[in-house]
Simulated scan of single mutants.
Amino acid sequence: MVSIHPAQRVAVLADAQNLYHSAQSQFSQNVDYAALLEKAVQDRELTRAIAYVIRADSPDEERFFEALTDIGFETKIKDIKTFADGTKKADWDVGLSLDAVTLADHVDTLVLVTGDGDFSRLCSHLRHEGVRVEVMGFGSSTAEELIEATDSFIDLSERKETFLL
């Protein structure tokens, strides 16, 4: 297991949809992305911080995207797709995974901010490649297999006053 030290290069990849839905369904609050980024980095060297967001044409989303940029996140935006039957779909799983694998050669630690169990295989792969993997998510909505596949898990719901607005 890779230990934490100040010279570690860190990338933070935040699954904004997953975070938003978890925070809303459990606490009816929004996530404090500034506090999240600060905790994720923990005085180490930030290489990249990317927030994966969905454009759904809701009233405040452009302001939210700008706020993420001001905090220090690079935003990757995908438009929501509406299919002929009315169902809507948008997810960043493949894009986030590709970015994580690409960044693996350039960082010591990758902090994944999500509860999505689909990323457990990615975590196992990154750890096999020698990258320390940390996950931050809301405990009750974070998949057990994701927690098991990481070096460290931070349960955001244990510090609501820090991570929620």
Rank of each mutant, 00 (worst) to 15 (best):
S3K: 14
H5W: 09
L19P: 09
A34N: 09
E38P: 08
E38V: 13
K39C: 08
R44W: 01
L46N: 02
L46G: 01
A51V: 00
V53K: 00
R55I: 03
D57H: 15
R63F: 03
R63G: 10
F64Y: 12
F64N: 10
L68Y: 05
D70M: 12
F73I: 00
I77H: 06
K78C: 04
T82D: 09
F83V: 04
A84N: 13
D85N: 13
G86E: 10
K88I: 04
W92A: 07
V94H: 04
L96Y: 00
V101D: 13
T102L: 14
V107P: 11
D108K: 03
T109E: 15
V111L: 03
V113L: 12
V113R: 08
V113F: 09
D116I: 15
S120H: 13
S120Q: 12
L122S: 06
L122V: 02
C123T: 08
S124G: 12
S124M: 12
S124R: 13
L126W: 10
G130A: 08
V131D: 10
V133Y: 04
V133M: 05
E134H: 07
V135L: 06
M136I: 02
G139I: 01
L146A: 00
L146E: 02
T150K: 00
S152H: 10
D155Q: 05
F163W: 00
F163M: 00
